[in-house]
Simulated scan of single mutants.
Amino acid sequence: MEEAEDDAAAIRDCSIRLLARREHSRLELQRKLEARDFLRGDIAAVLDALEWEGLLSDERFAEIFSRTRFESGQGPLRIRADLQARGVDSEIIDRVLELVDDSWLVHCRAAWRRRFGVAPADRREWSRQARFLSNRGFSAEHVRRVLDAVAEDDADMGG
C-alpha cells in the first residue's frame, strides 16, 4: 500500500513540475508520464485528482494553445487538428474557436499581407498564395474571400 502511495506522490510531483512549465492537455500529460514508466492506472487516478483540483484543465489548455497559435498566424483548421491530436474534446475545441470566430477572415488577410502584400497576377500565383493560406490552416472559404478581395482592391487601384 505504501508503495502505491509513493508512486502516486511521484506521479503528482512530476505532473506538477510539468504543469508549472506550461499548460498540458490531459492526454499530453498522460503520455509524458507513461514515457517515464509510471503505471497507467496510477496515472489516471492522479490526473483525475488534478482535474478535480483545477490544476489540470483541457479547456484552459485549449484556450491558451489556440490563442498562441492564432497570434502566430495559424488558422482554425490547423488549430483544431492540433488540439484534436492532443486529445481535447470536440465540444471544447468548438467553444474555444468560437471566441475568435469573427476574426478569422481578418486574420487570414493579415497572414496574406505579411507574406505577400501583392495580389496574385495570374492563376499560378493565385494557387501558390491559396496553398500558403490553406497550409496555415484557413478554410477554403476564407482563402477564396481574401484572394478575391485583394484582387478586387488591386483592380480598383488600377493594378
Rank of each mutant, 00 (worst) to 15 (best):
S127Y: 07
L147S: 03
R22V: 00
A110G: 03
E3Q: 12
L27E: 13
R86Y: 02
R95Y: 02
H24A: 02
V106K: 10
T68V: 06
S15L: 04
G87R: 06
I11M: 12
S25F: 01
D82R: 13
L133A: 12
G117H: 13
R12T: 13
E5L: 14
M1Q: 11
S66Q: 00
L19D: 05
E5M: 14
T68R: 12
R124T: 11
K32E: 15
R22G: 00
A110D: 12
R60G: 01
V100H: 14
L83D: 04
D37M: 05
E71G: 04
A111L: 13
S103E: 13
S139A: 04
G41E: 12
Q74A: 08
D101F: 10
E28N: 04
L18M: 12
C108W: 02
E51F: 10
G117K: 13
D122A: 13
H142N: 15
R78I: 00
C14I: 03
R17S: 07
A35G: 13
F132G: 15
D156I: 03
W112P: 09
G137L: 14
R131W: 13
R115T: 08
D58V: 01
R69E: 09
E2I: 07
R31E: 15
R67P: 00
P76I: 02
A4D: 10
A110Y: 05
R128C: 12
G41Y: 02
W104E: 07
R114H: 11
R136N: 04
L105Y: 05
L18C: 02
